[in-house]
Simulated scan of single mutants.
Amino acid sequence: MQSLMNTENTTATLEKADFLTIQDVSKVYPTPSGDYTVLDGVNLNVKEGEFVCVIGHSGCGKSTLLNMISGFNQPTTGTVKLKDKIIAEPGPDRMMVFQNYCLLPWKNVWENVYLAVNSVFPDKNKQEKITIVDEHLAMVGLTEASKKKPNQISGGMKQRVAIARALAIRPEVLILDEPFGALDAITKEELQEELLEIWRNHRLTVMMITHDIDEALFLADRLVMMTNGPSAKIGEVLEIPFSRPRNRAQITEDPRYYELRNYALDFLFNRFAHSEDPSEDSIEPEPTNNKLKIAGIVGGLVAISMAGFALFQSFNGNNGQTPQNNIERVN
């Protein structure tokens, strides 16, 4: 099984130096009934250029973890580092794409992307900025829709705008919080293909939340599976063995695909299934003093812009054997 599972792609990834490091991270929120521990003792090392998906039940701290990578939130204990530097605030080296797009409705598609470019590259002349915006809209197939407002385009097109805006500032880490969850199946698959193409061309490091196991197996190098909250942690990490570039039809015909899929399903719905007791099925709390956190952001003008986008939106509304050679157990 070992020779079957260890592909050249996986080996190449493991040889790279650690790029993003999450070490002994815990997050505790005060509540009227006492402290609520969302995350407890999370450890993860991500290689440069790696595509990592995070999966788990609601309330297990997935978004909290990605918010700490983006710099919008801070761990109670432990550290999150990018290139050995502690992440203390948002910055243009990390860009987040939200499920609800976070576009300014009074600006058109082109202006939404230009706002980010103009904030991050104040030293570039106007023509250089225009060129960057045009290139990235073309990359996601939105040149002809560039003058339309967000309410004039589809959900899939809005998500393309959000991805173009994130990539236009040339981040080192692209952070995706279930970006395709609200889209129909056909649009979802189209954007998955586009995301992989962009990732291959730019060799970004990607951290992505998903609730879709099939999506994770198609996109990721590794699948990080979270235990249930409260006090959630990383339970296991699956190495995805399929070589790149990936063909969806070929992958789904591979016996290993169903072996991994069934193992992930067993992890989520048997070993870490939701409790039938509603009192034990917790929901991840929102961070307190969010306005103060946003007001204190000084890690680049684009970070302020993105916090503004998020704030605006908030006002609107086992069949068999375990694939042991693909699993990293986290104690």
Results as ranks from 00 to 15, higher is better:
L265T: 08
G181P: 01
R256D: 05
L167Q: 05
C102Q: 10
S243T: 11
L167I: 15
F315L: 12
F242T: 04
Q74E: 12
N73F: 06
A310Q: 14
P285G: 05
N67M: 12
G41C: 09
T11S: 15
M225C: 15
A264Y: 01
A303P: 01
T31E: 14
V38S: 06
I297G: 02
V46Y: 01
S275V: 08
Q250H: 11
D266R: 12
L260D: 02
P287C: 07
W199Y: 09
L20M: 11
N289Q: 14
V54W: 01
S26T: 14
I153R: 02
A249Q: 13
E280H: 13
Y258N: 15
P105W: 11
V133H: 01
A168D: 00
L115W: 05
F315C: 15
M5L: 13
E190C: 12
N43I: 03
E236S: 13
K188H: 09
V120C: 07
G61A: 05
A185W: 07
L115K: 02
A182C: 13
L223W: 00
E194A: 10
S70Q: 14
R203F: 09
N270E: 13
Y257N: 03
G299E: 00
L167W: 02
A303Y: 01
A295V: 12
G235P: 01
V298G: 11
N112W: 04
M207N: 02
S305H: 10
F19T: 03
P122S: 08
M5W: 09
L176K: 02
N262Y: 10
T187L: 08
A166L: 05
G155E: 03
N319M: 13
G56M: 03
Y114R: 10
N125I: 14
A17N: 14
